[in-house]
Computed example of a mutant assay.
Amino acid sequence: MPIISSEPASARTSRTRMTGIGRVLVIVYGILALGATGRSVVQIIQDFQAAPVAYALSAVAAVVYILATLALVFSGSRGWYRVAWIAISFELAGVLIVGTLSIVDPALFQHPTVWSIYGIGYVFVPLVLPFFGLWWLRRHRPDAERA
């Protein structure tokens, strides 16, 4: 006999998505969002002229982490699920491109960004996290959970 619940299906789906590794991903993305936002605000306020490209990239990373955090929380819907894929894919491309450029041509990034040298200032979490995020999204498609 099926169990009947008074809570909406979307709430049940959201609750089951935010357990285990899903919850850890959201927490880590949230921490990176706070760290990157704080870093970029301080860099931009203190000395934006010293490294406008690097500091603007830190701000872009902050926005991406905020968006990825929100998208993971609400990824039970198709729209937010797509936003999560886009944000995390953009994050992966950003950390790979900026990380590679910061090694190949250090003059481009004389001041560090969140993604410099693949996120070395954040113990390489920015390099590893998008792989886990994309893996989790692939395993937790909204349509698959409703079936």
Score class of each variant (00 low, 15 high):
residue 10 S to D: 15
residue 11 A to Y: 07
residue 13 T to D: 14
residue 15 R to W: 04
residue 15 R to K: 07
residue 16 T to G: 05
residue 24 V to K: 02
residue 26 V to G: 00
residue 27 I to G: 04
residue 27 I to R: 04
residue 28 V to P: 00
residue 28 V to W: 00
residue 29 Y to N: 15
residue 30 G to C: 07
residue 32 L to M: 15
residue 36 A to M: 10
residue 37 T to E: 08
residue 40 S to I: 07
residue 40 S to V: 08
residue 41 V to C: 07
residue 46 Q to H: 09
residue 50 A to I: 10
residue 50 A to G: 13
residue 52 P to V: 06
residue 53 V to I: 13
residue 58 S to N: 07
residue 59 A to D: 09
residue 59 A to N: 10
residue 59 A to M: 15
residue 60 V to H: 01
residue 60 V to L: 03
residue 61 A to T: 04
residue 62 A to K: 10
residue 62 A to M: 07
residue 63 V to T: 13
residue 64 V to I: 14
residue 67 L to I: 14
residue 69 T to D: 04
residue 69 T to S: 10
residue 69 T to Y: 06
residue 71 A to M: 02
residue 74 F to G: 05
residue 74 F to R: 15
residue 74 F to H: 13
residue 78 R to S: 13
residue 78 R to A: 14
residue 78 R to C: 01
residue 78 R to D: 12
residue 78 R to P: 01
residue 79 G to S: 10
residue 80 W to N: 09
residue 81 Y to T: 01
residue 83 V to A: 14
residue 83 V to L: 14
residue 87 A to M: 15
residue 88 I to V: 15
residue 89 S to E: 08
residue 94 G to D: 02
residue 94 G to A: 05
residue 94 G to Q: 03
residue 96 L to I: 06
residue 102 S to C: 08
residue 103 I to N: 05
residue 104 V to N: 04
residue 106 P to E: 03
residue 106 P to W: 04
residue 108 L to A: 13
residue 109 F to I: 02
residue 112 P to H: 12
residue 112 P to K: 12
residue 114 V to P: 01
residue 116 S to I: 07
residue 118 Y to S: 06
residue 121 G to W: 00
residue 126 P to Q: 13
residue 127 L to S: 00
residue 137 L to S: 01
residue 138 R to K: 09
residue 139 R to T: 12
residue 140 H to L: 02
residue 147 A to L: 09
